[in-house]
């Protein structure tokens, strides 16, 4: 795990306030290529907001964010171009219900990357195969289980060959028996060297798969370090209390 740059994602001093409510109070998030970083913390700690700032679904009120060296927040940056390089996976999947699984995966390929339908379909099928759902290509989201929908959503993000994928609680909306299939895909992506930041409550998976863990609480990073260190020997009292709570 490389400790010093060049970082793929370099967020420094990120602040975000909704009105007078400051949700992020100066957070640093540095992610090296091929790294899998987990964000943990109680709900309302700012994990989701931090991820959403990293592709400007939320506009940070302070700080800097660079992706692959490009200043994400500069008004001269083409935000649509940057977003192609930052895959996003949502808690509630957000698949387009009026399109098939394949249609979901290929929409941006065709309309953003300007691929022909045949090319886009080929790339789309490759990515559905990658998440184990090639045979569901013609199914609509409403016909798929939650786990399958989330895997299609991952394929949709993968299809654009992003430099990094952000996942916002990707398994929180799933029935327990469906969580494993999604985590298996995440594990495959990690083994293939995909850079990822995942906000999640899956502590066991974090411990096993993450390179690094950040514990957020109240809009600040309370503690960060290698997964093993955070889970076995947390330095901060708040981290200890949180880990104790989620285990029981």
């Amino acid at each position: 795990m490389p400790e010093l740059g060049p970082f793929l994602l370099e967020a420094r001093g990120v602040r975000k306030a909704f009105g007078t409510n400051e949700v992020l109070k100066g957070v640093d998030l540095l992610v090296a290529p091929r790294e899998l970083v987990f964000l943990i913390g109680p709900s309302g700690s700012g994990k989701s907001t931090l991820l959403r700032c990293c592709n400007r679904l939320e506009e940070p009120t302070g700080g800097t964010i660079r992706i692959g060296g490009t200043d994400l927040l500069s008004p001269r940056t083409d935000i649509n171009r940057m977003r192609r390089q930052v895959g996003m996976v949502f808690q509630s999947f957000n698949l387009y219900p009026h399109l098939t699984a394949l249609g979901n995966v290929t929409l941006a390929l065709r309309k953003v990357m300007k691929r022909s339908r045949a090319e886009a379909d080929e790339i789309g099928m490759d990515n559905l195969r990658r998440v184990g759902l090639a045979e569901k290509a013609a199914s609509y989201p409403g016909e798929l289980s939650g786990g399958q929908q989330q895997r299609v959503a991952i394929a949709r993000a993968l299809a654009l060959e992003p430099k990094i994928i952000l996942m916002d609680e990707p398994t929180s909306a799933l029935d327990p028996e469906l969580v494993g299939s999604v985590l298996a895909v995440v594990r495959d992506l990690r083994d293939a060297g995909m850079t990822m930041v995942i906000a999640s409550h899956e502590m066991r998976f974090a411990r096993e798969a993450a390179d690094r863990v950040l514990f957020l609480d109240g809009g600040v990073v309370v503690e960060e370090g290698p997964a093993e260190a955070i889970f076995t020997a947390p330095r901060e009292e708040r981290t200890r209390r949180f880990l104790h709570q989620v285990r029981h």
Binding site: N55, L57, N80, R81, R83, R84, V86, G87, M88, F90, S92, N94, L95, Y96, L107, A108, K111, V112, A153, R156, A157, L160
Partner: peptide, 14 residues
């Protein structure tokens, strides 16, 4: 739902 727009924008659609 708002998430539909966010999903689209997150893939680089204008």
């Amino acid at each position: 739902p708002r998430g539909q727009v966010e999903a689209g924008r997150s893939t680089g659609l204008g």
